[in-house]
Design a protein around this nucleic acid. Structure first.
Length: 104
DNA sequence: TCGCTGACATCCA
DNA sequence: CTGGATGCCAGCG
């Protein structure tokens, strides 16, 4: 285990990269793994560096996809086999965390 | 150094 | 269930 002196950004990317296909984790869970409660900070990292990690596997509490990216994440969940339920929300769907929530 | 922003979480009405 | 308000954390100007 090479390093521990890694920036918060690298830590977030590492956790997201460890999420297995077909499963998802919430921003709060990722922050908890890092030992922080900055769920928002995690979202910041995704917005800037999430391009290199399966950001679609990181969702908000309640099983909602990232705000403004629901359309881009929906096909990913279908490809991964993540169970989701259609809703009347702006996102159009919701993820069943009870069946695919990833636990570190 | 200070203040604002943001792909959030949780609580209450 | 929905909506509004508050709190937390890290990055950037």
């Amino acid at each position: 285990m090479p390093q521990q002196p890694v920036g918060f950004v690298d830590a977030v990317l590492a956790v997201v990269a460890e999420i297995p296909p077909g499963q998802v984790a919430t921003y709060g869970d990722v922050a908890a793994v890092l030992g922080s409660r900055g769920a928002r900070a995690v979202g910041q990292v995704m917005a800037r560096y999430g391009s290199d990690v399966p950001w679609w596997r990181v969702v908000r509490a309640g099983g909602r996809p990232p705000a403004g990216h629901a359309e881009a994440a929906r096909p990913r969940y279908e490809a991964e086999g993540v169970p989701m339920r259609a809703t009347a929300d702006d996102d159009g769907y919701r993820i069943d965390l009870a069946a695919c929530r990833w636990r570190p």
